[in-house]
Protein backbone atom coordinates (compact mmCIF):
# COMPACT_ATOMS: atom_id res chain seq x y z
CA UNK A 1 0.00 0.00 0.00
CA UNK A 2 1.25 3.43 -0.91
CA UNK A 3 1.87 5.96 1.83
CA UNK A 4 -0.63 8.34 0.23
CA UNK A 5 -3.36 5.73 0.61
CA UNK A 6 -2.82 5.26 4.32
CA UNK A 7 -5.25 7.83 5.63
CA UNK A 8 -4.14 7.46 9.23
CA UNK A 9 -0.46 8.08 8.46
CA UNK A 10 -1.19 10.79 5.91
CA UNK A 11 -3.45 12.57 8.36
CA UNK A 12 -0.86 12.46 11.10
CA UNK A 13 1.84 13.69 8.74
CA UNK A 14 -0.28 16.61 7.61
CA UNK A 15 -1.42 17.60 11.08
CA UNK A 16 2.08 17.15 12.52
CA UNK A 17 3.58 20.53 11.61
CA UNK A 18 0.58 22.47 12.85
CA UNK A 19 0.50 20.48 16.06
CA UNK A 20 4.24 20.94 16.60
CA UNK A 21 3.84 24.66 16.00
CA UNK A 22 1.04 25.00 18.54
CA UNK A 23 2.79 22.90 21.17
CA UNK A 24 6.27 24.42 20.81
CA UNK A 25 5.38 28.06 20.24
CA UNK A 26 2.10 28.40 22.17
CA UNK A 27 1.72 25.50 24.60
CA UNK A 28 5.23 25.34 26.03
CA UNK A 29 5.63 29.10 26.61
CA UNK A 30 2.15 29.25 28.13
CA UNK A 31 2.85 26.46 30.63
CA UNK A 32 6.29 27.92 31.27
CA UNK A 33 4.75 31.32 32.00
CA UNK A 34 2.33 29.81 34.49
CA UNK A 35 5.17 27.95 36.20
CA UNK A 36 7.37 31.05 36.25
CA UNK A 37 4.59 33.12 37.78
CA UNK A 38 4.73 30.87 40.86
CA UNK A 39 8.51 31.09 41.13
CA UNK A 40 11.15 33.60 42.05
CA UNK A 41 13.02 33.12 38.79
CA UNK A 42 15.07 36.03 37.47
CA UNK A 43 16.67 36.62 34.10
CA UNK A 44 20.08 35.94 35.65
CA UNK A 45 19.45 32.46 37.07
CA UNK A 46 17.53 29.54 35.70
CA UNK A 47 16.62 28.05 39.08
CA UNK A 48 12.88 27.70 39.69
CA UNK A 49 12.15 28.30 43.34
CA UNK A 50 8.52 27.80 44.23
CA UNK A 51 7.13 30.86 46.00
CA UNK A 52 3.41 30.17 45.72
CA UNK A 53 1.22 33.24 45.21
CA UNK A 54 3.94 35.64 46.32
CA UNK A 55 4.25 37.26 42.88
CA UNK A 56 0.51 37.69 42.65
CA UNK A 57 0.17 39.27 46.06
CA UNK A 58 3.05 41.61 45.24
CA UNK A 59 1.54 42.89 42.02
CA UNK A 60 -1.94 43.18 43.52
CA UNK A 61 -0.50 45.53 46.13
CA UNK A 62 1.33 47.54 43.45
CA UNK A 63 -0.47 50.73 42.36
CA UNK A 64 1.33 50.68 39.00
CA UNK A 65 -0.02 47.21 38.29
CA UNK A 66 -3.53 48.19 39.33
CA UNK A 67 -3.32 51.23 37.08
CA UNK A 68 -2.11 49.04 34.21
CA UNK A 69 -5.00 46.67 34.82
CA UNK A 70 -7.44 49.55 34.73
CA UNK A 71 -5.78 50.97 31.61
CA UNK A 72 -6.05 47.61 29.87
CA UNK A 73 -9.78 47.54 30.60
CA UNK A 74 -10.28 51.16 29.50
CA UNK A 75 -8.29 50.76 26.30
CA UNK A 76 -9.93 47.47 25.39
CA UNK A 77 -13.51 48.52 26.08
CA UNK A 78 -13.04 52.04 24.71
CA UNK A 79 -11.46 50.91 21.49
CA UNK A 80 -14.02 48.16 20.92
CA UNK A 81 -16.98 50.52 21.42
CA UNK A 82 -15.36 52.84 18.89
CA UNK A 83 -14.75 49.89 16.57
CA UNK A 84 -18.40 48.75 16.63
CA UNK A 85 -19.70 52.22 15.84
CA UNK A 86 -17.12 52.89 13.13
CA UNK A 87 -17.41 49.45 11.57
CA UNK A 88 -21.20 49.59 11.40
CA UNK A 89 -21.08 53.05 9.86
CA UNK A 90 -18.34 52.10 7.41
CA UNK A 91 -20.19 48.95 6.41
CA UNK A 92 -23.27 51.04 5.58
CA UNK A 93 -21.12 53.25 3.37
CA UNK A 94 -19.40 50.36 1.65
CA UNK A 95 -22.69 48.64 1.01
CA UNK A 96 -23.81 51.48 -1.21
CA UNK A 97 -22.65 51.47 -4.81
CA UNK A 98 -20.29 54.32 -5.68
CA UNK A 99 -17.40 55.01 -8.01
CA UNK A 100 -14.03 53.92 -6.73
CA UNK A 101 -15.52 51.46 -4.27
CA UNK A 102 -12.80 48.89 -4.89
CA UNK A 103 -10.05 51.39 -4.33
CA UNK A 104 -11.77 52.66 -1.19
CA UNK A 105 -12.08 49.14 0.11
CA UNK A 106 -8.40 48.56 -0.50
CA UNK A 107 -7.50 51.71 1.41
CA UNK A 108 -9.84 50.69 4.20
CA UNK A 109 -8.01 47.42 4.67
CA UNK A 110 -4.55 48.98 4.74
CA UNK A 111 -4.37 49.54 8.51
CA UNK A 112 -5.01 45.84 8.93
CA UNK A 113 -2.11 44.97 6.64
CA UNK A 114 0.45 47.41 8.07
CA UNK A 115 2.72 45.89 10.75
CA UNK A 116 1.72 47.16 14.17
CA UNK A 117 5.11 48.58 15.03
CA UNK A 118 5.41 50.56 11.80
CA UNK A 119 1.92 51.94 12.21
CA UNK A 120 2.62 52.88 15.81
CA UNK A 121 5.76 54.74 14.78
CA UNK A 122 3.74 56.69 12.23
CA UNK A 123 1.20 57.51 14.92
CA UNK A 124 3.93 58.85 17.25
CA UNK A 125 4.47 61.52 14.60
CA UNK A 126 0.77 62.23 14.38
CA UNK A 127 0.72 62.69 18.16
CA UNK A 128 4.12 64.42 18.32
CA UNK A 129 4.36 67.22 20.88
CA UNK A 130 5.64 69.68 18.28
CA UNK A 131 4.60 68.40 14.88
CA UNK A 132 1.22 66.79 15.68
CA UNK A 133 -0.80 67.05 12.50
CA UNK A 134 -3.96 66.84 14.58
CA UNK A 135 -3.05 69.90 16.60
CA UNK A 136 -2.03 71.94 13.58
CA UNK A 137 -5.19 71.02 11.73
CA UNK A 138 -7.39 71.91 14.69
CA UNK A 139 -5.50 75.19 15.06
CA UNK A 140 -5.87 76.20 11.43
CA UNK A 141 -9.59 75.45 11.51
CA UNK A 142 -9.86 77.51 14.66
CA UNK A 143 -11.13 74.66 16.84
CA UNK A 144 -8.09 74.61 19.11
CA UNK A 145 -6.63 77.58 20.90
CA UNK A 146 -4.20 76.01 23.35
CA UNK A 147 -2.02 72.99 22.59
CA UNK A 148 -2.61 69.27 23.15
CA UNK A 149 0.31 67.22 24.49
CA UNK A 150 -1.11 63.95 23.26
CA UNK A 151 1.44 61.57 24.69
CA UNK A 152 2.49 63.81 27.55
CA UNK A 153 -0.71 63.84 29.61
CA UNK A 154 -1.98 60.55 31.06
CA UNK A 155 -5.63 61.06 30.03
CA UNK A 156 -4.84 62.23 26.51
CA UNK A 157 -2.22 59.52 26.09
CA UNK A 158 -4.74 56.84 26.99
CA UNK A 159 -7.16 58.40 24.50
CA UNK A 160 -4.44 58.34 21.85
CA UNK A 161 -3.85 54.66 22.54
CA UNK A 162 -7.58 53.97 22.20
CA UNK A 163 -7.63 55.78 18.85
CA UNK A 164 -4.72 53.75 17.48
CA UNK A 165 -6.13 50.45 18.71
CA UNK A 166 -9.54 51.23 17.20
CA UNK A 167 -7.88 52.32 13.95
CA UNK A 168 -6.03 49.03 13.84
CA UNK A 169 -9.00 46.71 14.47
CA UNK A 170 -11.81 48.54 12.70
CA UNK A 171 -11.01 47.54 9.09
CA UNK A 172 -11.23 43.90 10.08
CA UNK A 173 -14.48 44.51 11.95
CA UNK A 174 -15.86 46.39 8.94
CA UNK A 175 -15.17 43.45 6.68
CA UNK A 176 -16.87 41.11 9.13
CA UNK A 177 -19.91 43.38 9.46
CA UNK A 178 -20.08 43.77 5.66
CA UNK A 179 -20.11 40.02 5.28
CA UNK A 180 -22.83 39.86 7.92
CA UNK A 181 -24.88 42.53 6.17
CA UNK A 182 -24.72 40.69 2.87
CA UNK A 183 -25.98 37.57 4.60
CA UNK A 184 -29.19 39.33 5.67
CA UNK A 185 -31.83 38.31 3.11
CA UNK A 186 -32.72 41.18 0.79
CA UNK A 187 -36.39 40.27 1.17
CA UNK A 188 -36.31 40.91 4.90
CA UNK A 189 -34.78 44.34 4.39
CA UNK A 190 -37.34 45.16 1.70
CA UNK A 191 -40.16 43.91 3.92
CA UNK A 192 -39.05 46.35 6.57
CA UNK A 193 -39.05 49.15 3.99
CA UNK A 194 -42.60 48.30 2.90
CA UNK A 195 -43.58 47.97 6.57
CA UNK A 196 -42.64 51.59 7.02
CA UNK A 197 -39.32 51.39 8.83
CA UNK A 198 -37.02 54.34 8.19
CA UNK A 199 -33.21 54.14 8.18
CA UNK A 200 -32.72 54.13 11.97
CA UNK A 201 -35.52 51.72 12.73
CA UNK A 202 -34.22 49.40 10.03
CA UNK A 203 -30.70 49.65 11.45
CA UNK A 204 -31.58 49.14 15.10
CA UNK A 205 -34.60 46.83 14.84
CA UNK A 206 -33.69 44.66 11.88
CA UNK A 207 -30.07 44.83 10.79
CA UNK A 208 -28.20 45.14 14.07
CA UNK A 209 -30.16 42.36 15.83
CA UNK A 210 -29.48 40.10 12.87
CA UNK A 211 -25.83 41.16 12.90
CA UNK A 212 -25.37 40.57 16.63
CA UNK A 213 -23.71 37.13 16.33
CA UNK A 214 -21.31 38.47 13.72
CA UNK A 215 -20.53 41.58 15.75
CA UNK A 216 -19.92 39.41 18.81
CA UNK A 217 -17.27 37.51 16.89
CA UNK A 218 -15.65 40.73 15.68
CA UNK A 219 -15.61 42.12 19.22
CA UNK A 220 -14.18 38.88 20.58
CA UNK A 221 -11.27 39.12 18.17
CA UNK A 222 -10.86 42.81 18.93
CA UNK A 223 -10.82 42.27 22.70
CA UNK A 224 -8.20 39.58 22.48
CA UNK A 225 -6.02 41.52 20.03
CA UNK A 226 -6.22 44.72 22.04
CA UNK A 227 -5.87 43.29 25.55
CA UNK A 228 -2.78 41.31 24.60
CA UNK A 229 -1.11 43.91 22.38
CA UNK A 230 2.33 45.10 23.40
CA UNK A 231 3.48 47.08 20.37
CA UNK A 232 1.15 50.06 20.27
CA UNK A 233 1.57 51.18 23.87
CA UNK A 234 5.24 50.26 23.97
CA UNK A 235 6.04 52.42 20.96
CA UNK A 236 3.59 55.26 21.57
CA UNK A 237 4.21 55.95 25.26
CA UNK A 238 6.43 53.19 26.59
CA UNK A 239 4.04 53.16 29.54
CA UNK A 240 4.81 56.77 30.37
CA UNK A 241 4.50 59.46 31.42
CA UNK A 242 5.54 58.16 34.86
CA UNK A 243 4.09 54.65 34.36
CA UNK A 244 0.56 56.05 33.96
CA UNK A 245 -0.29 54.47 30.62
CA UNK A 246 1.03 50.94 31.09
CA UNK A 247 -1.15 48.08 30.01
CA UNK A 248 -0.52 44.56 31.25
CA UNK A 249 1.68 43.40 28.34
CA UNK A 250 3.96 46.44 28.51
CA UNK A 251 4.24 46.19 32.30
CA UNK A 252 4.97 42.49 32.05
CA UNK A 253 7.70 43.24 29.54
CA UNK A 254 9.15 46.01 31.69
CA UNK A 255 9.16 43.95 34.90
CA UNK A 256 10.01 40.57 33.49
CA UNK A 257 12.50 41.32 30.71
CA UNK A 258 13.88 44.80 31.30
CA UNK A 259 13.64 44.49 35.07
CA UNK A 260 14.79 40.85 34.98
CA UNK A 261 12.11 39.75 37.49
CA UNK A 262 10.81 36.86 35.39
CA UNK A 263 8.46 35.60 38.08
CA UNK A 264 6.61 38.88 38.50
CA UNK A 265 6.57 39.54 34.76
CA UNK A 266 5.01 36.13 34.20
CA UNK A 267 2.42 36.76 36.90
CA UNK A 268 1.41 40.04 35.24
CA UNK A 269 1.24 38.40 31.81
CA UNK A 270 -0.79 35.44 33.02
CA UNK A 271 -3.11 37.58 35.13
CA UNK A 272 -5.41 38.37 32.23
CA UNK A 273 -5.89 34.80 31.01
CA UNK A 274 -8.87 33.93 33.23
CA UNK A 275 -10.59 37.20 32.29
CA UNK A 276 -10.06 36.66 28.58
CA UNK A 277 -11.42 33.14 28.86
CA UNK A 278 -14.54 34.46 30.57
CA UNK A 279 -14.94 37.15 27.91
CA UNK A 280 -14.52 34.59 25.15
CA UNK A 281 -17.09 32.24 26.65
CA UNK A 282 -19.57 35.08 27.17
CA UNK A 283 -19.14 36.33 23.62
CA UNK A 284 -19.54 32.90 22.11
CA UNK A 285 -22.66 32.44 24.22
CA UNK A 286 -24.15 35.67 22.93
CA UNK A 287 -23.36 34.58 19.40
CA UNK A 288 -24.99 31.22 19.98
CA UNK A 289 -27.99 32.56 21.83
CA UNK A 290 -28.80 35.02 19.09
CA UNK A 291 -28.62 32.30 16.49
CA UNK A 292 -30.84 30.09 18.59
CA UNK A 293 -33.21 32.96 19.32
CA UNK A 294 -33.41 33.69 15.63
CA UNK A 295 -34.50 30.25 14.81
CA UNK A 296 -33.50 27.49 17.13
CA UNK A 297 -35.50 24.96 18.98
CA UNK A 298 -34.32 25.97 22.43
CA UNK A 299 -35.73 29.48 22.37
CA UNK A 300 -39.13 28.98 23.97
Amino acid sequence: MKFADREDLLGAAMLGPALAYVILLVGVPFVLAIMLSFSSATAGSLTLTWVGFHNYSTILADPIFLRALRNTAIVTIGSQVLVIVLATAAAQVFRAAFHGKRAARFVLLLPWAVPVSLAAIAWTWIFDSTFSVINWTLRVTGLLHGWLYWLGEPGLALFAIIIVQAWRIFPFATVIVLAGLSSIPQDVVEASIVDGAGFWRRLFKVELPLLLPVIAVAVLFGVVYTATDLGVVYILTGGGPANTTHVLPTLAFQRGVLGADLGQGAAIAVFLVPFLIVVAVLMLRVARRTEVGAGGIGAR
Partner: peptide, 9 residues
Protein backbone atom coordinates in the same frame (compact mmCIF):
# COMPACT_ATOMS: atom_id res chain seq x y z
CA UNK B 1 -42.95 38.05 -0.33
CA UNK B 2 -42.37 34.64 -1.82
CA UNK B 3 -39.93 33.83 0.99
CA UNK B 4 -42.37 35.49 3.47
CA UNK B 5 -39.41 37.64 4.61
CA UNK B 6 -40.29 37.30 8.29
CA UNK B 7 -37.95 38.92 10.79
CA UNK B 8 -36.11 35.87 12.14
CA UNK B 9 -35.11 37.52 15.42
Amino acid sequence: FQSYALYPH
